[in-house]
Nucleic acid binder design. Structure first.
Lengths: 247, 247
DNA sequence: TGAATGTCGATTGTTAACAATCTGGCACTC
DNA sequence: GAGTGCCAGATTGTTAACAATCGACATTCA
């Protein structure tokens, strides 16, 4: 009895509520600026205000919610800068994580098999038809991949930033429907192959390409309210300028 | 009546409690494995359990406290790996932040002056005599310096990781008394000079040197309970191998 | 008219009591 | 003697009521 038993899910009420709120934001049911009123949510979930309060507090360090003392919580209003900054963080940390993953990972390990399996899921047609499921599967793969580094703190930060990026992009009005699934899956395959080959340089190169493509896809779909030229944006350049090693 | 009035501190009770707990951990009054019992703390602070609960919850994402459902909170027990990983994060993110800081920062700006002023504080003899004050001043300078990047999310992560590193080092039994103040201040001066000169390469180089020196100083003072050879430690190598561009 | 002030409803902050769960010890069984 | 079941105390999880605060509107007074 040593295999196959995962720990029981220790999810408290407030964790469940936090999950629901996160999902609602990611699905677009809660939009930037919407107020989160403890009493309302408590009634809706048929619980008391305590757990609701805790759930809201959880979302603050995640950047999804802004709290103002005595004035309650509202769904955050991320800006273009926020999105690009999150990608800059991912670019930076992911480079280290994948480098390490390529070094330490053995292809036969269950973790690697897990990552490969999640990529397989992404190829599934029925998943590709549901943007929400597709997004979840995408996040799950990236999380598994970056966890191969066996750097738990860094992986946690990367998982967090992946969710942040997805949420922020959604809050800025860009939906996952716009993504080119084939290209996304291809990039993921390149990443996994690099790890499989145990090549740190290939892995980081593939990662840079992935981030660059993701940011470019986002900037194409995002219609800036100030209609500034994104190619001139300093943060966009920060990300893009760093995505390729100088030759 | 427009000058000299800063906004009133909007610190809630739970924030105050969280600060006190954080300080207690950093000062060594709370050690790894110590239980944080809501009732006890509530009595000690002469408040009810609610705010205490919230304070404890705040410390969880910071990595200072571990929560197990229905079994309460205990002060975290970071390992050598945790410390080194935090420094790997700092190395990675700080490189980007300082690069950006060197690019965007004008020496005359109040932010730059603020950073310079904090470095000045560090030189103060009376501060150098109190390890706790010295640590605070050190953190304040690094925070100010990295904030020059005008990348708020990245700066927040860096500030967080700086506090994490300090706490973890303390929890592993290494105190700030062991640090070489003169060398520390010198490294900070080099960093500030690089920003002043507006040189991204000088700034990132100085940052790498700083992290390397910090990690080396820590590993010297830390007597590993497993007395493994730290120079053989994979994570230490991850940090140290990345601290200098290959020639 | 319009700026300053008072009041009210909505909402959060805090408290204290109650319910659920875990830990450790002890008796009991086999 | 190893394992199981059960109980009591300690501690967390949840609830509902009370207090404090904020924003908006009404009111006052120049």
């Amino acid at each position: 009895m040593t295999t196959g038993y995962t720990p029981l899910p220790e999810t408290s009420t407030s964790d469940l509520v936090a999950d629901r709120l996160r999902d609602a934001i990611l699905a677009g049911d809660l939009k930037s600026g919407d107020r989160l009123i403890e009493t309302d949510l408590a009634e809706r979930f048929e619980i008391s205000r305590g757990p609701v309060r805790e759930a809201i507090r959880q979302l603050v360090p995640e950047g999804l919610v802004v709290l103002r003392r005595n004035r309650g919580a509202v769904v955050a209003s991320p800006t273009l800068d926020d999105v690009l900054e999150v990608y800059a963080v991912r670019l930076s940390l992911g480079t280290v994580a994948l480098q390490q993953a390529a070094r330490v990972q053995t292809v036969a390990s269950p973790q690697f098999q897990g990552a490969a399996k999640r990529l397989e899921l992404l190829r599934n047609r029925s998943i590709q038809e549901d943007a929400q499921l597709m997004l979840e599967a995408d996040l799950a793969f990236q999380d598994a991949l970056l966890s191969l580094s066996q750097l738990p703190r860094m992986s946690a930060l990367l998982a967090q930033s992946a969710r942040d990026a997805a949420s922020f992009v959604r809050m800025l009005g860009v939906t996952y429907d716009n993504t080119d699934h084939a290209a996304l899956i291809q990039r993921h395959e390149v990443l996994l192959d690099a790890i499989r080959a145990g090549s740190p340089t290939a892995a980081t190169g593939a990662w840079h390409q992935h981030i660059r493509a993701t940011v470019e896809e986002f900037t194409r779909c995002y219609d800036d309210p100030d209609h500034t030229d994104i190619s001139q944006h300093p943060l966009a350049n920060l990300v893009l300028a760093n995505t390729l090693e100088k030759p």
